[in-house]
C-alpha cells in the first residue's frame, strides 16, 4: 500500500517539483550558517549594491546587508514558524474535532459554536491583534497563527469522525469494551489521517504567508531575519532597488507554491478516485 502511494505521488509531476522546491528550501535553511556564517543583520558591503556586484549574489540592501544571507536565514524563520504553528493548529484542531465528532450532541454543538467564533473573525486581523497584544516574538507569532488556523481542521476532523463513528469496526471496538480514548486514537484517527495530512501541508503554506504578512507590517520577531521583513523594509525603495524586494518575495512565492503542489499531490495520491479522473 505504501509503495502504491509513493508511485501515485511520484506520477504527479507537479508534486515532485513541489517536493524538490521545498527540499531545496529546507537544505538552504539548514545550511544557512555554513553558507553565510556572518549574521544577516551585519553590514557586508556598500549599501544599494546590485546583484552580482562586489561578489554579492543578490546584492545588498539600504544598510549594506547581504540579501542572499537574509534570504537563507529567513528560510529558517519561515519554515520554523510554518511547521511549529501548523503542528500546534493540528493538535488543537484534531483534538476538538475528534471530541466533537465522536461524542456528538451538546458537546458537539458547544465545540462547533466555539469553532465558528474563530472562523467568523478574519484570520489576519486576529493574528495582528494577538501579536500586537503579546509583543512580537517567535513564540507569540506561532501561537497567533496556530490560533487562527485550527478551526477549519477541527471541522474537517469532526466530519470524518461523524462518518467513521457509525462504522461497524468502531461498533465492534465498543462491544469489545475498548475505552473512548483507545477508540478515538487507535481506531478512528488512523483512518482519517490522509485528509489531515493534506490540509496540514497546505496549512504550512498559509502559515508562511501569514508570518510574511506580519513581518511586512513590522510585527515580526525583531531578532529574526525573515522574508516578510525584508520585503516590508525594502518596499519604500522598490523603484530604485527592485532586487531588495524581489529575492525575498520570490522565495516566499516558491516556497508557498512548492507546499501547495505537495498538498495537491498528497491529495491525489490519497484519493485514488480523483487520481484516476486526472489521468483520463
Amino acid at each position: 500500500m505504501n509503495r502504491d502511494f509513493l508511485h501515485a505521488f511520484a506520477r504527479n509531476k507537479g508534486a515532485v517539483l513541489g517536493l524538490a522546491i521545498v527540499g531545496a528550501v529546507i537544505l538552504v535553511a539548514l545550511a544557512a550558517d555554513l553558507l553565510f556564517p556572518a549574521s544577516p543583520w551585519e553590514m557586508a558591503g556598500a549599501p544599494f549594491g546590485r546583484p552580482l556586484a562586489d561578489g554579492m549574489l543578490m546584492g545588498t540592501d539600504m544598510l549594506g546587508r547581504d540579501i542572499a544571507s537574509g534570504v537563507a536565514h529567513g528560510a529558517r524563520v519561515s519554515l520554523l514558524i510554518g511547521l511549529a504553528s501548523t503542528l500546534a493548529a493540528v493538535a488543537i484542531g484534531v483534538l476538538l474535532g475528534a471530541v466533537a465528532g465522536y461524542y456528538g450532541g451538546r458537546l458537539d454543538d458547544l465545540l462547533m459554536r466555539f469553532t465558528e467564533l474563530f472562523q467568523t473573525i478574519p484570520n489576519f486581523v486576529l493574528v495582528v491583534v494577538i501579536v500586537a497584544i503579546f509583543t512580537p516574538s517567535l513564540v507569540s507569532i506561532v501561537v497567533a497563527i496556530a490560533l487562527v488556523s485550527w478551526a477549519p481542521l477541527a471541522r474537517l476532523v469532526r466530519g470524518e469522525f461523524l462518518s467513521l463513528r457509525s462504522r461497524e469496526f468502531v461498533q465492534a471496538a465498543i462491544t469489545c469494551g475498548q475505552g473512548d480514548a483507545t477508540i478515538i486514537f487507535r481506531q478512528i484517527l488512523p483512518n482519517c489521517m490522509s485528509p489531515i495530512i493534506v490540509s496540514a501541508s497546505l496549512m504550512v503554506a498559509t502559515a508562511i504567508l501569514l508570518e510574511s504578512s506580519l513581518s511586512f507590517l513590522g510585527l515580526g520577531d525583531p531578532n529574526a531575519m525573515s522574508w516578510g521583513f525584508m520585503v516590508g523594509s525594502a518596499r519604500t525603495v522598490l523603484r530604485q532597488a527592485w532586487w531588495m524586494c524581489f529575492f525575498p518575495g520570490f522565495a516566499i512565492l516558491l516556497t508557498v507554491l512548492g507546499l501547495n503542489l505537495i498538498g495537491e499531490g498528497l491529495n491525489d495520491a490519497f484519493n485514488p478516485r480523483l487520481r484516476r479522473k486526472r489521468k483520463a
Partner: peptide
C-alpha cells in the same frame, strides 16, 4: 459486555483497515 459479543454484517466495514 465481554460475555455478549457480536459478529457484524459487512465484512468490509467491520474490520479496521489500519490494524
Amino acid at each position: 459486555r465481554r460475555h455478549v459479543q457480536m459478529v457484524f454484517q459487512d465484512p468490509y466495514a467491520s474490520l479496521n483497515p489500519r490494524h
